[in-house]
């Protein structure tokens, strides 16, 4: 099998020199990861520059993970969980919400733009919301420019 069997439109050439952020996306297994899969099943197209890491619940996302991603040069970190009241593990997402709010304060105190970290709810039936969230966050981070750690 080779890819030349495919009949696709020409890839849209990225405007040369344009900043393309590196995004890390944590998805919970039950809602957001399923939502991301649904985006795929529905063939919803979106930018390629994000990498998904699956955890069973968004509450597994240790603040350490976020800091590690930023320290390694991620330009943005997105955490996606089940909508309030929909958590497969009852209330894990509420804990995530508190932790992320706190972490954002911490990031700001260290002079790091907290908007590089975002928490959103994406359900298993929201393929479109997954697409929209990725696109929007990508634009927001593009606007902010590269992670300043990358300059050091």
């Amino acid at each position: 099998m080779s890819s030349d069997q495919a009949v696709h439109a020409e890839p849209k050439a990225a405007e040369s020199g344009e900043f393309e952020p590196k995004l890390i996306v944590f998805c919970c297994n039950w809602c957001s990861y399923a939502g991301a899969d649904l985006a795929g099943v529905s063939r919803l197209q979106m930018p390629t520059n994000f990498r998904v890491i699956r955890t069973m619940c968004s509450a597994r996302v240790d603040p350490e993970f976020v800091l590690r991603a930023f320290a390694n040069g991620a330009d943005g970190v997105l955490i996606l969980g089940c909508h309030p009241a929909d958590c497969h593990y009852i209330g894990g997402n509420y804990r995530t919400r508190r932790r992320i709010a706190l972490l954002r304060v911490l990031l700001e105190q260290y002079g790091f733009n907290p908007d590089r970290l975002r928490l959103e709810w994406v359900s298993a039936s929201e393929g479109q919301k997954f697409q929209k969230t990725i696109k929007e966050f990508n634009e927001v981070v593009k606007e902010m420019g590269p992670n300043p750690i990358n300059d050091e």
Binding site: S3, H8, K12, D37, Q131
Partner: peptide, 28 residues
């Protein structure tokens, strides 16, 4: 590594970048 639902299907018009992403996902 989910290189279909979360890669080839959502980047259908960007084969090069999708291939790059698939490599990254497998490496992870």
């Amino acid at each position: 590594a989910n290189i279909r639902d979360q890669c080839s299907w959502i980047h259908m018009h960007e084969p090069e970048k999708a291939t790059q992403k698939a490599k990254d996902l497998v490496r992870m």
